[in-house]
Design a protein around this nucleic acid. Structure first.
Lengths: 194, 194
DNA sequence: GAATACATGTAATCCGTTACATGATTCT
DNA sequence: AGAATCATGTAACGGATTACATGTATTC
């Protein structure tokens, strides 16, 4: 069973939903780190149901097919709990951004600077959005501080996202600074250096 | 052309290598963010060569087949430069860790704490390794400060990795603190809160 | 003598994205 | 009238992992 299955169980553990609403929720990254499309979600729901982890009831809706409201089963909740509490996988994060930075020495100074400033600008934008969401959590009351309320985990991932963007912006500033300081080293001059 | 192709070009821009050495390099994440297996690299090298971005010469080796040393072509370098300097893709990072944290409200306090402490311990371990690599950069001389030397980008990604692990550890401490403060709220008591 | 490092490939499978397909209700 | 939202599915394709396949040279 893959990670997507657990992401769906996590959403259904909060409240029952239709596949469509799950797809909506996972369109904007859940926990700021996981996305999925409806074309992945519908088949996955069928597998989860075959395994007895979720069940559905047909409700009124506006689609051309039956509208199905899914809820997590007690088995599903148990499986989800077991997964959260199992040994950590060794994660290999992928970031196209850092791959570009790794080859940054190939770009002229002004283009390198433009790239880092673009990265920074996107970080600033995401951070602003996260701050709005933080205010929404605060406005919603004390549920974010209640270890047994669904918002507890969601708020913790938001704080992680905020810290991550802060760190990214700081790192961009450090690198822009560095690019400015390392100016006018062309290849002919660099032979004479050191 | 996919991201793996650019990762390979980035490595070959530094120095020519065999497919085996590329695979070794990408076994430990390059730039701390990209991994690949040899089964992906060998076919990709063939595509890159068909597109004229790399070329190979047969050298002495110990394999059952010919040993091929690949180098980047001038076209390859141009294509790599253009990629680094092209509009940023909207990135959707995936982190199984944060997905677990999102559902953390389902775990009892002690298990939740154990999970976060595991995450923290792994962060500390990676950080220690990164610090060693930082010392190696410093020992290697001023190349990390030379905007036109390959080490410039590699050092920048390392600093990013260090900042990221620092941030992760801080966040873990914040959450452990929070888990301790939010103790003994069971569901019956939580009704009377606030 | 056994294990490890060097060295290159293919096949099967899984996960994720994009595109195709359909159709009712509500809002502008 | 047309666009957006609700609603559920399948098909084609690409990227990544795991397993299969082979064989030499060096180190313990």
């Amino acid at each position: 069973m893959g990670t997507l299955g657990y992401a769906i169980l996590g959403l259904l553990a909060k409240e029952p939903r239709t596949g469509y609403k799950l797809a909506r929720a996972m369109n904007q990254p859940i926990g700021y780190i996981w996305t999925a499309r409806h074309s992945q979600i519908y088949p996955e729901l069928a597998y989860l149901e075959a395994d007895g982890l979720v069940r559905h009831t047909v409700v009124d809706g506006r689609g051309p097919r039956e509208t199905k409201r899914y809820e997590i089963t007690t088995t599903g909740t148990a499986v989800l709990r077991r997964w959260i509490d199992s040994p950590l996988p060794t994660h290999s994060p992928r970031s196209e951004l850092m791959l570009r930075v790794w080859s940054l020495w190939l770009l002229p100074s002004d283009r390198a600077r433009a790239l880092i400033e673009d990265i920074r600008a996107e970080g600033v934008e995401r951070l602003a959005q996260y701050r709005i969401e933080e205010q929404q959590f605060i406005a919603e009351g004390p549920s974010k501080d209640d270890r047994e309320a669904p918002n507890f985990g969601a708020y913790a991932t938001l704080m992680w996202g905020i810290a991550r963007e802060d760190q990214l912006i700081e790192w961009c500033d450090w690198l822009i600074e560095r690019l400015a300081h390392a100016t006018d080293n062309n290849s002919s001059q660099s032979e004479s250096r050191r």
